[in-house]
Nucleic acid binder design. Sequence first.
DNA 1: CGTCGCTTTGATTTACCTCAACCTTGGTGG
DNA 2: CCACCAAGGTTGAGGTAAATCAAAGCGACG
Lengths: 249, 249
Amino acid sequence: MLSENAETAFAAQSYVNGKAFAPVGPTLQSLFGRQAVEKFEPGSAILWEGDAASHIFEVMDGVLRVFRILADGRRVITGFLYPGDILGVSLKDRYLYSAGAVTHVQVRRFPRNKFQEEINRSPELRPQLFSKLCDEMAAAQDQMVLLARKNAEERVCSFLLAMARKKGAKQETPVIEVAMTRLDMADYLGLTIETVSRTITKLIGRGVIASIGRHGLKILKLEKLVVLAGDGDEEDKSCGYARQAVWPN
Amino acid sequence: MLSENAETAFAAQSYVNGKAFAPVGPTLQSLFGRQAVEKFEPGSAILWEGDAASHIFEVMDGVLRVFRILADGRRVITGFLYPGDILGVSLKDRYLYSAGAVTHVQVRRFPRNKFQEEINRSPELRPQLFSKLCDEMAAAQDQMVLLARKNAEERVCSFLLAMARKKGAKQETPVIEVAMTRLDMADYLGLTIETVSRTITKLIGRGVIASIGRHGLKILKLEKLVVLAGDGDEEDKSCGYARQAVWPN
DNA sequence: CGTCGCTTTGATTTACCTCAACCTTGGTGG
DNA sequence: CCACCAAGGTTGAGGTAAATCAAAGCGACG
């Protein structure tokens, strides 16, 4: 449940003169290095909410969904995991969520108590884990904003934008591969499949994006997508609204 | 942004023979002990999204709201903070959210770089921080479930239930003090003030809760509230749904 | 005791959901 | 190589929960 994005504050050793360099010591990935690779078919379960939280997983290949299910069957996908991400970090003795394979998936698993020991022991590993936790927290907050106040179009655009950014796509018209189904998108965005479908159709009709085969989308108007995502200027935060000493209570 | 709830895994020293005891070494709270207390009026701002993230705060007294605002003014409260909670932990050099006082508030602040040093240095402090991060993450996931798939009544009931649980109220009919306004509740639950108001009125009408003055509520039917919150059996997780090797893709 | 801010209540609108039918696509076997 | 099939996706019609707009009620505080 931890997203890839190596920030290095809290890592005394990782910056020298303000210049970053590749970590020389152990990395979270290297921890899992000696473990056997496990493969999962699309649709198969990696772990279930309520299971004894005995292992931590590293995603090596493919895409996972992390989700919870309400008593009456409603499903919420709280996040997707990609290669490099870590699954199962928590302090509870049971998993708080389920995880399943969206595509073919390869993972390595590591016993949780050993993982904890390694983390406790290693001043190189700790900041890496901490960094991932912080990124995950930031993503969760973005998602709360999306779910609490954005409309269907803003939600879909935000999602597509996040997909494009993940690819690190710097091209004018990045092509993104949407591995998940409409149902996954709907359960992640708090919508129905029909609404997701209609919204995408509308975006295509407006020339913002174009469909490329089953799971491909080309972003034709990136700036437009940013505006439609409704975050107001990702880049220029802190300037969007008036600052006042007292906010209406 | 970190909730109080001391789990102690990852804390090699905090359990002996499976029996917990009060930490003898430094605690997160003691870190802030020598700092001056700062007071904030209800409605005043503690920090703003986009500000240089120079300090970490410990809430000593009162209730804070943590929120983000979209370009067009829509507000989302991502969480409330109570005494013992920590605000401002992150790796980014700017705060990712704003925080303001709901009630009269007392906090202590600690320079972030010093905080990081202390955390890096102290094997007692680290698991405490880690524990708070994990609790915060779990709360964020619950909130995503609430926002993505619960209806107005379920949202309000979930909120009231969380308030009751925070008090650790073991009585049959716990009284909770709702420090925040309807607008706060609405922005936290992804609803409007009118919907929050109507939902509470309905719950009172059904005898599930009773109003006690301006900011007080008595929970008359706790079990009913649990059912209405829609989580399906908080207690008995992992048994609520069928387990299958393959989930529909 | 009057005012201001918050809350409640009512009437109406609307974005999204639900239900239902149809279409595409990719895989399979004849 | 093509026809068929199932799963996923799209499109349409109608319903509904919550939003919006509007006004009145209520409490706290000077």
